[in-house]
């Protein structure tokens, strides 16, 4: 297991390097000019100087190497300095990945936006799981019952209706018609006392529920299929035959075994949730990572786009790895040798 983890980690490094290079190439091949939006009265030689000041004077491979150095060496060093209040080397003159639009380091922007996204995404995933697991268990236990059929239909609908439509529909119903919930997420809001906590819950309700319902639809399908696989196994009959209560058979024996594949599916789904958050954040005006990405793309802010896209790639590779390792740990029948 340990060897397998090390091997997978070593394999992840070249994968990520290739992905970062692909992203870099795509951004570089694009026929656009970062000085294109500046006034036409700027003379060409000044324009050239602006390009050089943005770091575009060098050939492709040198710029790529510099980005790698900034992202993998300079930024981690900076984070360590901030966390432990120490100075390592010449930290004043260390080059950081700078956003073209705001002229501030991209990593600072990301750190600023991270909490909102993590709250919305994390809460929606937790709520989605909490809804999905009981539904999956009951629909598998009472297969083809009315509950199962309604559950199947609702999950099919939840799976098919895109989040941008459910989000807008919720705004039309709960904000426009009923006026219960705010349609725009207020990020500057601080939780100090009970009323402000209530406001925070109210404004988080719609963005998290939209994502949570979408997740629940998918997870409950997996849960049901996995429970059905296990319910027909011999050990379930044995457990019943030796006189265990049905509750214990279902919730201890079957549920624990059924959760193994579901846990890996959950780990695999985390990166998708982050991409889903791009859309949800756009609907509810949450200023998280997704919105930062959209603004950066619209403003052709290449370093921000490059860094953010790469972070999404890291998430995918990381959670694939976690899913595989979790499967090996949870299921002793799986041996990676």
């Amino acid at each position: 297991m340990f060897n397998y983890t090390i091997r997978r980690l070593l394999f992840a490094v070249p994968t990520l390097l290739v992905i970062s290079f692909i992203i870099f190439i795509i951004l570089d091949l694009a026929p656009n000019d970062p000085t294109g939006n500046l006034p036409l009265t700027i003379p060409p030689e000044v324009r050239e100087k602006i390009r050089i000041s943005l770091g575009l004077g060098e050939p492709l491979h040198i710029r790529y190497m510099k980005w790698l150095q900034q992202f993998f060496i300079n930024e981690p060093l900076n984070l360590i300095e901030q966390w432990f209040n120490v100075t390592i080397g010449d930290s004043e003159n260390r080059l950081r990945v700078q956003s073209w639009a705001t002229r501030s380091p991209v990593v600072d922007l990301i750190v600023e936006r991270m909490p909102q996204t993590l709250w919305v995404v994390g809460m929606s995933y937790v709520i989605g799981i909490l809804i999905a697991v009981p539904i999956g268990v009951i629909s598998a236990y009472k297969q083809y019952s009315l509950f199962d059929q309604i559950g199947t239909f609702i999950s099919m609908v939840g799976f098919s209706v895109p989040t941008f439509f459910t989000g807008l529909l919720m705004i039309v119903i709960f904000s426009v018609t009923l006026g219960w919930l705010p349609s725009i997420y207020d990020t500057t809001h601080k939780v100090t006392d009970l009323p402000s906590l209530w406001f925070q819950i109210k404004q988080m309700l719609m963005p998290t529920m939209v994502l949570a319902l979408f997740n629940a639809a998918q997870i409950s399908r997996f849960m049901r299929a996995s429970m059905l696989d296990n319910l027909s196994q011999d050990y379930v009959r044995t457990a019943r035959a030796k006189g265990l209560k049905e509750k214990i058979v279902l919730l201890v024996h079957v549920l624990r075994n059924s959760l193994i594949p579901v846990v890996t599916v959950l780990a695999l789904g985390v990166p998708q949730i982050f991409s889903g958050a791009i859309i949800t954040e756009q609907i509810f005006r949450v200023n998280g990572l997704g919105q930062l990405l959209i603004i950066a793309i619209q403003g052709a802010d290449i370093p921000t786009v490059q860094t953010l896209t790469f972070i999404f790639a890291v998430l995918i590779v990381l959670f694939n790895l976690i899913a595989d390792i979790l499967y090996g740990i949870l299921d002793p029948r799986i041996r990676y040798e």
Binding site: T15, I19, I26, P31, N32, I278, L293, I297, V305, T309
Partner: peptide, 23 residues
């Protein structure tokens, strides 16, 4: 195939469209 599966598709799609739309 594994490499394509590891690409962050939605951000990349957005980037590609933004950059190649006008040409």
């Amino acid at each position: 195939t594994d490499l394509f599966l590891a690409l962050p598709l939605l951000p990349l799609l957005l980037v590609i469209i933004m950059l190649f739309r006008d040409p």
